[in-house]
Nucleic acid binder design. Sequence first.
DNA 1: CGGGAATATGAACATCGGGGTATATACGCC
DNA 2: GGCGTATATACCCCGATGTTCATATTCCCG
Lengths: 113, 113
Amino acid sequence: MESSFAIIAEPNRRAILSLLASSERSVGEIERRLRMPQTSASKHLRILREAGFVEARVEAQRRVYRLRPEPLMEVDAWLAPFRRFWTAHVDALERHLDRIEPKPAKPRKGNKR
Amino acid sequence: MESSFAIIAEPNRRAILSLLASSERSVGEIERRLRMPQTSASKHLRILREAGFVEARVEAQRRVYRLRPEPLMEVDAWLAPFRRFWTAHVDALERHLDRIEPKPAKPRKGNKR
DNA sequence: CGGGAATATGAACATCGGGGTATATACGCC
DNA sequence: GGCGTATATACCCCGATGTTCATATTCCCG
């Protein structure tokens, strides 16, 4: 409930966010597009709203939800230190592979033995 | 424990990852630096390992853990569509502030209009 | 004015994951 | 071989959270 990370741990909530990334939507639209029961959509939206991921505009009986960037920016910021790490990794791996066998090979993953 | 998002929802696990971002560590080091019970550290490391966030090198009785980039890259990739969203927001905010209090212009890349 | 759509909330229930304790396994050293 | 250190695992408990069902609220419209 606290951290932004916990919020986006829930798959349905990520789906809602991704949907809202393209454009704002009413609750009904969200239910239909994501094939999610109304009550479930409402609850997830509540959680997203209270965590600052979305905000609602009232439009007659509908609530139109739209994205708010701050919490995801926070996640992005946490990721920053790691980015440096993995770009270095990819570079090193590429150099390594080039040295071993100069062919356009694709990287293998965890190969333990 | 399916998704990478669920894995990093846990604060202790994020702490471990952040610690490993600076350099690899043995379990004992992790326990001490994070003031976390040994059994807890081991469990979280197991989860991180099985989810591909870390890998362990055996060194006598110690296991030295180091970061693996892939799962965090996946999170980063999920964030990508949203980034466009909030940079637009920041730009709007900047324009707004510029209007209120015009500051000496700073070099921007894409000069619009 | 009354009915029905759109959305929110509450209660009951099941599940899951983390913390703690106890214990097992592996290794190095004397 | 026996001990101490380092790490992993099994088990239990408990609280948090998601799902569903039932109901409340708000608003449009005929």
